[in-house]
Design a protein around this nucleic acid. Structure first.
Lengths: 199, 199
DNA sequence: AAATTTCCTGAATTGTGATTTAAGAACTCC
DNA sequence: GGAGTTCTTAAATCACAATTCAGGAAATTT
């Protein structure tokens, strides 16, 4: 056996993986098997599964958001920050586990207020992130915004979300690069900056 | 008893309603109860539920798309057509049954190729619809496109989709009017047309 | 309106999955 | 290394949902 309390922490990521694979109707046994234990062991730590699923999603979203912030450290040029943020907002492929998790929740949010709150809060945080970058670009003179920073930021997050769904559904002509390019096209128009893609 | 074969047709809309309410994990009994019959009656017409659900979604999507085309008849001005199309692409509220159905499917598409195909095809049809309007506006001189018509069309559909999800999740400050306005803002930028909102 | 076919119900069947529980294994502390 | 605690398992239980089926009701045909 590993250290005490080790499983409880692992269960969050196991639940994330299981839910990314099986959706909101994920079974307790699938989570258990993902964690390499039996159902009873899962119930020992989380007497009801709903709480585990909620925490798993919460932590999955937090990780997704933190990763994106992390990818910005060391980049000070607003244009480069904007490009980088767009790049980390699109799933790498139809298997991207973080985005799968988010998409699985999308439909559930219509009838589960907790999930709705989680997704709404993630959306707003991402809008703030973009808004910060846009305002920074305005201050530095790099961007010449053609719309409210709030409008642009919301539309950027919306585009990310939607192309994430399209990629999850394996759209035949919408891969990572084209999704990024589509979003960048809007960003160029809205910021008046050429936002060159080459690294 | 009603006319012969009456229930079979009703089952499609009953399944749509049940699925809009309960999501992809909708129960046979919920569909039956929505149709006012017992589970056995449903199985009599659709020996396996998957087929019913698939047809229900297919028909739900077709209706959604046809409604939007229908809302365009009699409108010849490209700008008015574009505005109208955007208006019918956003759900009226968190209860909009058509969009609920679509959102419920979004997450499922990641692991169900049939649903993925359905959603991808709907996306592409909507892109074509927008593209036609944009090209018409170019031809008439009303629009001065700042990007490919394909790029604009894809981004418009993507924005619709994403704000649909946000509204399903009851975002506190993103209602019908603001979502329409956000999408219109992008459309204005991309077409060079003021796209006035007042009817 | 009798015969025939189609349609629907309610009970029984079967399968699946969450949850409980008793027992045993693994860890920690002393 | 032994006592006590924490953790995990496997089997049993409970609940629920899909499916089957025999019988009867409703429509249609003749």
């Amino acid at each position: 056996m590993a250290r005490r309390g080790a499983l409880k922490a692992n269960l969050l990521v196991a639940a994330q993986r299981a839910m990314a694979e099986h959706g909101t109707s994920v079974r307790l046994n699938q989570i258990a098997s993902e964690a390499g234990v039996t159902a009873g062991a899962v119930l020992y730590h989380y007497p009801n599964m709903q709480e585990l699923l909620f925490e798993a999603n919460q932590s999955g979203m937090a990780r997704f958001h933190d990763m994106r912030l992390q990818a910005l450290v060391g980049i000070s040029d607003p244009a480069a920050r904007l490009i980088q943020t767009i790049r980390t907002g699109v799933p790498e492929g139809p298997e991207d586990p973080d985005v799968r998790l988010l998409c699985a929740l999308g439909g559930e949010a219509a009838r589960n207020n907790l999930y709705a709150l989680l997704l709404t809060s993630l959306f707003d945080r991402q809008v703030s992130m973009y808004q910060g970058i846009l305002e920074m670009g305005v201050a530095s003179g790099a961007f010449d915004l053609r719309q409210d920073s709030m409008t642009i930021a919301r539309n950027l997050v919306a585009l990310e979300d939607a192309y994430g769904y399209r990629m999850m559904a394996k759209h035949p002509t919408l891969g990572y690069e084209s999704a990024v390019e589509l979003i960048l096209e809007y960003a160029r128009l809205a910021t008046g900056h050429p936002l060159p893609l080459e690294k």
